[in-house]
Design a protein around this nucleic acid. Structure first.
Lengths: 133, 133
DNA sequence: GTCAATCCCGACCTTTTTAATCGGGATAGA
DNA sequence: TCTATCCCGATTAAAAAGGTCGGGATTGAC
């Protein structure tokens, strides 16, 4: 339950791209000036591209652009892209001594928690992050 | 944004203690039968005790008990105890090139996210986890 | 009073994950 | 053709998580 550099960097990069708009593609070196190691950022942007959140223009004068409008990208999209899908609890998998195996209360309660968190994160869009709304 | 073994173990232990009720203190060795390494669990229970979630009876016939009623302990209490308080975003701390420093949109949006998540987690009590409500 | 069961605690080690670096290849505008 | 750029896998370094160990303190049972 913690915010990693990966997510923080990805958020910064996406917010920056959102602020830049559709004008021109922003080169990696420019985005990295937001305070991130350029080589590491490159990996993250690759991941974001593979998940369809940014698109690229290759070659000279190339760079990165948002793949969709900022209002159409949520924090859940970004976090899921770089951190993977939000994990589910495994609940009493080992010895079974504590009984109840599959449909135990912990599982049900945890299910409620994860979907609740997903909702919260999914309600914040990239444009919200730009405007602070 | 992931569930660690620490949290999973702590949840199991707390749920087990909740199921045992106020009858007798449960020794570490018994709790560990839920499928956790005993020495590691000991550390976790020490942390939970320091945060006032369990109390102990020392000496022979001793063990661990919930410090409060199961309805009065939430998932937020447990997670905060073992993982520390839910972190806040730092937002653009390095070069300042991306402008806006303090009260930027990302900070505001992230603030909303963390408090939202806290609410979700805080609404699930230990007794909810036992009953699955 | 002794003994055994128990909590207590800090130090250490191992494994996994995260973060960062590097080198070379592909692409395309000027 | 040259250079700025994306692309990508391999490697390393740093940090965190997960787990182990040994010895000390407490206390009920006998």
């Amino acid at each position: 339950m913690k915010l990693t550099s990966k997510t923080r960097y990805a958020m910064r990069a996406m917010v920056f791209l959102a602020e830049c708009g559709e004008s021109a593609p922003q080169p990696l070196s420019r985005i990295a000036q937001c305070g991130m190691p350029v080589n590491y950022l490159e990996q993250l942007l690759g991941t974001l591209r593979k998940h369809g959140l940014v698109r690229t223009v290759r070659g000279n004068q190339g760079g990165y652009l948002l793949a969709r409008s900022a209002g159409d990208i949520t924090l859940l999209d970004i976090i899921t892209a770089v951190e993977g899908p939000i994990k589910k609890s495994l609940c009493y998998t080992n010895t079974g001594v504590c009984s109840k195996q599959e449909n135990c209360g912990v599982n049900k309660a945890w299910e409620k928690v994860t979907s609740g968190i997903e909702q919260v994160i999914n309600r914040v869009s990239l444009s919200d992050m730009v405007t602070g709304s």
